[in-house]
Deep mutational scan, measured.
Amino acid sequence: TGEEYIAVGDSTAQQVGDLTFKKGEILLVIEKKPDGWWIAKDAKGNEGLVPRTYLEPYS
C-alpha cells in the first residue's frame, strides 16, 4: 500500500536502485525518506528511488 503520485517530469535512473519514469506516469510511493528521495513502484511493478521534486499528489 502507499500513496499515488503523478510524475511532473521525466527522470532517468542515475545509479542502481533508481527508478526511471516518464512525465504523466502514476507512481505508488511506498516510503518517504527525509533526504528527498522516495521509494516508489510503477505500474509494471518496478521499484526504486525517485526524486520527490518530480512528483505531485494524484487525485
Rank of each mutant, 00 (worst) to 15 (best):
T12E: 12
I6P: 01
N46I: 08
T1F: 13
D42W: 02
G24E: 02
F21R: 00
L49Y: 12
L55M: 06
L19C: 03
V8D: 02
Y54N: 07
E56V: 13
K41I: 14
E25F: 05
P34H: 10
A13Q: 08
I6E: 03
V29G: 00
A13T: 10
K23H: 05
A7W: 07
T1H: 13
G36M: 05
L49P: 06
P34T: 11
S11R: 15
G45L: 03
L27F: 06
L55I: 08
D18E: 15
D18T: 15
K41T: 07
D10Y: 05
T20V: 12
D35G: 14
Y54G: 06
D42S: 05
L55K: 02
P57A: 07
D35P: 02
S59W: 11
R52D: 10
W37L: 10
W37C: 11
W38V: 04
Y58M: 10
V29Q: 00
R52N: 13
V8E: 02
V16Y: 10
Y58D: 03
I30H: 03
W38R: 00
A43R: 11
L19R: 01
E31S: 11
K44L: 12
G45W: 02
A40T: 03
L27A: 00
E31P: 00
D18M: 15
G17T: 07
G45D: 04
G17Y: 07
D10Q: 05
T12G: 09
L55C: 04
E3I: 10
L55N: 00
D10A: 07
F21W: 04
S11F: 15
E3D: 09
V29H: 00
A40Q: 01
V29L: 04
T12F: 13
T53V: 11
T20Y: 08
G45R: 02
T53C: 14
A40K: 01
E56K: 12
T53E: 15
A13H: 10
G48F: 05
D18S: 15
E3M: 11
L28F: 12
N46S: 06
D10T: 07
S59H: 12
Y58L: 11
K33L: 11
E3Y: 09
L28N: 06
Y54L: 15
V50L: 04
E31Q: 11
S59R: 10
P51G: 07
E56D: 05
P34R: 08
G24H: 04
W37S: 08
K23N: 05
I26W: 06
K41F: 07
K41R: 15
K32C: 04
T1A: 13
T20L: 08
P51Q: 14
D35V: 03
T53S: 14
Y5S: 00
T1D: 11
E3V: 09
I6D: 01
I39E: 02
W37T: 09
V8Y: 04
A7C: 11
G17N: 06
L49W: 10
P34E: 11
G36Q: 04
Y58N: 06
L49K: 13
Y58G: 04
Y58P: 05
A13M: 08
T53F: 11
G17A: 06
D42H: 02
K32R: 07
I26M: 06
G45T: 01
Y5Q: 01
I6Q: 06
E56Y: 08
K44V: 08
L55A: 01
G48W: 05
V50E: 01
I39Q: 05
G45S: 03
K32F: 06
K23L: 06
Y58A: 08
T12K: 12
T53K: 13
G9S: 15
F21Q: 00
I30P: 00
K23C: 09
V16D: 12
E47S: 10
N46M: 07
E56T: 10
D35T: 07
L55E: 01
P57W: 06
K22Q: 07
S11L: 15
D35I: 03
L27T: 00
W38L: 04
W38G: 01
W37A: 07
A13E: 09
G24Q: 02
V8A: 06
D18N: 14
K22I: 07
G48I: 03
N46G: 05
R52E: 14
S11G: 08
Y54W: 09
V29I: 11
I26F: 05
E3C: 14
Y58C: 08
K44I: 08
T53G: 12
N46D: 06
D18G: 15
V8T: 11
V16F: 13
V8K: 10
K22C: 09
G24T: 02
L55H: 01
P57M: 06
V16H: 11
E25G: 03
E56C: 14
N46T: 07
W38D: 00
G17H: 06
L49E: 05
Q14G: 11
K41H: 06
V50P: 02
I6C: 06
T12D: 13
A7K: 01
G2I: 10
V16M: 11
L19K: 01
A7M: 05
V16I: 12
I26K: 06
A7I: 03
T53W: 15
F21P: 00
G36P: 03
L19V: 03
A13F: 10
E47C: 14
N46A: 07
Q15H: 13
D10R: 03
L28Y: 13
G24I: 02
L27R: 00
A7Q: 01
E31W: 11
Q14N: 12
I30F: 08
T1E: 13
F21M: 03
A43E: 09
N46Y: 06
D42R: 02
T20W: 08
G24M: 03
L19Q: 00
E3R: 10
T20M: 09
W38I: 02
Q15P: 05
W38F: 06
A13L: 08
A7D: 00
S11C: 15
K41P: 00
I26T: 04
D35F: 05
E3L: 09
E31N: 10
L27K: 00
K32L: 03
K23T: 08
W37P: 05
K22F: 09
F21L: 04
G17S: 07
K33D: 06
L28S: 05
L28M: 10
P34F: 09
I30W: 03
A7S: 05
Q15G: 14
V8G: 04
G48P: 00
I39C: 07
I30L: 12
K44H: 13
I30N: 02
G9K: 15
T20G: 08
E47Q: 13
K33F: 11
G48H: 03
